[in-house]
Amino acid sequence: MANRLFKGQKQFKVVTIEECLSCKLKMKRPFKINDYVYKEGEVCQKCGTKMIISAIYKEELKY
């Protein structure tokens, strides 16, 4: 995480959401380099089809 230049700047972690288009199962995991939205993801644990990355967003870190 980058150094804070400005007072009060919040710290975040970025997460990747993988979604199965058949059974709608959603899986959240930490963002990995080379992830991008609509890239093919892991195999769905519920129905066995390929999931896609449906979103990448940041979440505020709470201490």
Binding site: A2, F6, Q9, V37
Partner: peptide, 24 residues
């Protein structure tokens, strides 16, 4: 300026930015 500095990290890691909602 703060917004521009905060944009460095996501751009470097090729993470989607708020402006990318249209393409999404």
């Amino acid at each position: 300026v703060e917004a521009l500095v905060s944009a460095i990290e996501p751009i470097k890691n090729a993470q989607p930015i708020g402006d990318g909602i249209g393409p999404m």
